[in-house]
Design a protein around this nucleic acid. Sequence first.
DNA 1: ACGAAGATCGACT
DNA 2: GTCGATCTTCGTA
Length: 210
Amino acid sequence: METAINLLSDKSRVKTLPREFYVRPVLEVARDCIGMILVHRSPDGEAAGRIVEAEAYRGPLDLAAHSSRGLTKRTAAMFGPPGYAYIYLLYGMHWAINLVAGAEGEPHAVLIRAIEPIRGIELMARRRKKLATSRELTSGPGKLTQALAITGQHYGIDLCGEELFLEVGERRAGVGRSPRINVAYAGEWALRPWRFYERGNRYVSVAPRI
DNA sequence: ACGAAGATCGACT
DNA sequence: GTCGATCTTCGTA
């Protein structure tokens, strides 16, 4: 946490998070993502939202991570340098975005599971065919990619570039932890509390069990 | 070459 | 709460 705070205050004039943000243990990166702003500048305009839910994946040991099955065409980005996007198709239907993190060569990544709309809300509503006030706009990994128009064409994109990046944001509530969602196939790895979320935020995809 | 399963969503009861 | 959609990836033959 120390590291992140110093990192952010030093760069307070620069809104885009630098590569160093991603070059840290993936659990720290996942936790520190909560409250940061995910921005996509597309030809249609800019859309952005505060990250309110994220999960850490730590292959190759972590059996819930795609990278536990080794380096393939799909997982190549996870094995590449930190600060790039690993994007894949979920259930053959929806795109999901991950931020590659950790030391170079470690196939670790942070899955963004939910954001709270901040800018370009009407644009997101049109893309989602929902009301701008609807929770359904961005309360899930496949929903937020549709709202931000992130697809496979962004595979491997540099998150320190001008199109798709994280911006410093403020955290409004405490960060909760829980096991990751829908990874029961990973056996005991599914029990690890590697999901982070902002407490009380209505865009969090799955309500935490109290 | 074939078949199963998946880091989900939305429609429906 | 249940269930179908849809397609890439990977294990097995």
